[in-house]
């Protein structure tokens, strides 16, 4: 078990910078998600750690050794791919034993270890089958067994669950998490699915345009986004623009909103982010809360949850998420008072 460090890693394709000066650490035994839109550089970062791409600058450390110049086959990594990438001409057992054979483990011993790995992923009797005889979920389990059986230093997952349907994906998330916890393997997981990142990770790194804009525990990144991009990409946010005035923020329509954390100096422009589920409809104003009046323009009924789109008299667009708890569904055109706590009002960088 080892940690992974990348130091000042940069990569440019032609004249397009894909990664710019990335320095971060993936602690021993942690499960870190690299989350970002396509083109954010998350896959490039994973492939640099794997060794498929050589960084233009910077170094990659696995444990205490600098592996920047070490080829992929010498890095002892376990890797999973979106397309499963099983060897179609080999049986499941041969697939799992492939990495063992490369390490000089052959014959009965390889067979034994391969079957242990298959038991770990709950496919004990599938050794003699061929990949095409397996369902997508089963194939991905085999891929996991194949990656784990070689006792890798680090597990690298390149959107491994994206090709599975929703139910299967949730099942595999649980499985993946169990196996990762049991093995204590440092894991780096590339995904564009924010829900997956929140459920699985100890740490989430949000990437945008080749930079890590924020890295931290899921709760921290979600509750305290540092930038507008982070607040928007992970979850949903309402953005309120205004000027700092006496420790609070005055919006364009005159509403004064209080925020948590440090604000810039008086007179400075600032953007506040508020999660739509932190807002609620109230009948009377409470002194401690921020509040604003708005008219409901759209009602989206999604069974367990309700979401509303609203607009304030000043023309500000807002979103509100509510649990479908008391059976009361607001209707379009209603004018309501929204209230939220200053604690959930975060100043973010544009």
């Amino acid at each position: 078990m080892t940690n992974v460090k990348v130091n000042s890693v940069a990569k440019t394709y032609g004249s397009v910078p894909v990664l710019r000066d990335i320095t971060t650490e993936f602690p021993e035994g942690s499960f870190t998600s690299l989350l970002g839109p396509s083109g954010s550089g998350k896959t490039t970062l994973l492939r640099i750690v794997a060794g498929f791409i050589k960084p233009d600058e910077g170094i990659v450390m696995i444990g205490n050794s600098d592996v920047t110049e070490v080829p992929v086959w010498g890095r002892n990594i376990g890797m999973m791919f979106q397309s499963y990438a099983l060897f179609p001409h080999m049986t499941v057992e041969q697939n799992v034993a492939f990495g063992l054979e490369r390490r000089g483990i052959k014959g009965v011993e390889a067979k034994k270890q391969a079957n242990q790995a298959l038991e770990m992923v709950h496919l004990p009797d599938f050794g003699k089958r061929y990949p095409k005889q397996l369902s997508g979920g089963q194939q991905q389990r085999v891929a996991l067994a194949r990656a784990m059986v070689i006792k890798p230093s680090v597990l690298l997952l390149d959107e491994p669950l994206s090709a599975l349907d929703r139910r299967l994906r949730q099942e595999m998330q649980v499985e993946l998490l169990r196996i990762q916890r049991e093995s204590g393997l440092t894991t780096i997981f590339v995904t564009h699915d924010q829900e997956e990142a929140l459920t699985l990770s100890d740490k989430i790194a949000i990437l945008d345009k080749g930079r890590i804009v924020q890295i931290g525990e899921p709760g921290e990144v979600y509750e305290k986004p540092l930038t507008r991009f982070a607040a928007e990409f992970l979850g949903d946010s309402n953005f309120l623009k205004g000027k700092v005035e006496g420790g609070a923020v005055r919006l364009a329509d005159g509403t004064v909103v209080r925020a948590s954390g440090a604000l810039p100096a008086d007179g400075a422009d600032v953007t506040l982010a508020v999660r739509p589920e932190k807002m609620s409809v109230v009948s009377s104003l409470e002194e401690a809360s921020n509040s604003i009046r708005a008219r409901i323009t759209t009602v989206i009924y999604a069974g367990q949850a309700l979401s509303y789109l609203l607009v304030t008299p000043g023309g500000l667009q807002l979103k509100l998420f509510a649990q479908n708890k008391d059976g009361r569904v607001l209707s379009e055109g209603e004018v309501v008072t929204l209230a939220w706590s200053p604690e959930h009002t975060i100043a973010v960088a544009e």
Partner: peptide, 15 residues
């Protein structure tokens, strides 16, 4: 042949 298959083999230590 999917590139990922070759990459999987290399990641498992294949020269």
């Amino acid at each position: 042949i999917d590139d990922a298959i070759i990459e999987a083999a290399v990641s498992l230590g294949a020269r």
